[in-house]
């Protein structure tokens, strides 16, 4: 029964019921899970009901990669060890196919599971998406409804008029009225 050489496995259940079996070390990349495992509630399936399966898959991919880097980082001339540049490139590649709704869920998941590196990757991506954009463009991109009244929006714009100069979307709106 006690096969100490065998890697201990942990089972995680996503919000839509899919069960993922991962090595304990992979699960422990998530600080929230690490705390739970150290509290010893490990033998049952851990329900992660705020994260859907496709998102959890992505999260587990990230965690696996982190384990791969750290497990071999003590040896010299480690082929997996990355320079700052390589790490950046890897992060970009990891986030490449992520669309805006996945990104939102990924942010919430990494925040909830407390995976700092993944959260930072997500925020980085989000910030690169909003750069230089006006509020309406950001709303369209993230499917957010403008819930300000025209008066409220006017006030926000007046407070920081310099940031809204030449906003084509706003002008369009007011001229179409």
């Amino acid at each position: 029964m006690s096969e100490s050489t065998e890697k201990k496995m942990v089972r995680l259940r996503s919000s839509d019921g899919e069960v993922f079996e991962v090595e304990e070390s992979v699960a422990k990349v998530a600080k929230t899970l690490q705390d739970m495992l150290e509290e010893d509630c490990a033998d049952a399936v851990i329900p992660i009901t705020c994260v859907r399966a496709p998102i959890l898959t992505k999260v587990i991919d990230y965690c696996k990669d982190q384990v791969m880097i750290s497990s071999s980082s003590s040896t010299t001339n480690n082929p997996n060890e990355r320079t700052e540049q390589e790490r950046k490139a890897w992060g970009q590649k990891f986030m490449e196919g992520v669309d805006s709704s996945t990104l939102c869920e990924l942010l919430v998941a990494s925040n909830f599971l407390n995976i700092e590196g993944l959260l930072n990757l997500g925020v980085d991506k989000m910030v690169s998406m909003i750069q230089g954009k006006y509020p309406q463009e950001i709303r369209d991109m993230f499917n957010v409804v403008n819930d300000f009244t025209p008066e409220e929006e006017e006030e926000i714009r007046n407070q920081n008029a310099w940031a809204f100069e030449r906003d084509p979307y706003y002008k369009k709106r007011s001229s179409s009225k």
Binding site: N111, P135, F164
Partner: peptide
């Protein structure tokens, strides 16, 4: 997460515009 995003935004105008998106 919103506060973390705010910390990552470099340009002040991006910050102002982003946080004028919704209530």
């Amino acid at each position: 997460i919103l506060l973390l995003i705010a910390r990552y935004i470099d340009q002040k105008e991006d910050l102002v515009r982003t946080f004028a998106v919704c209530k």
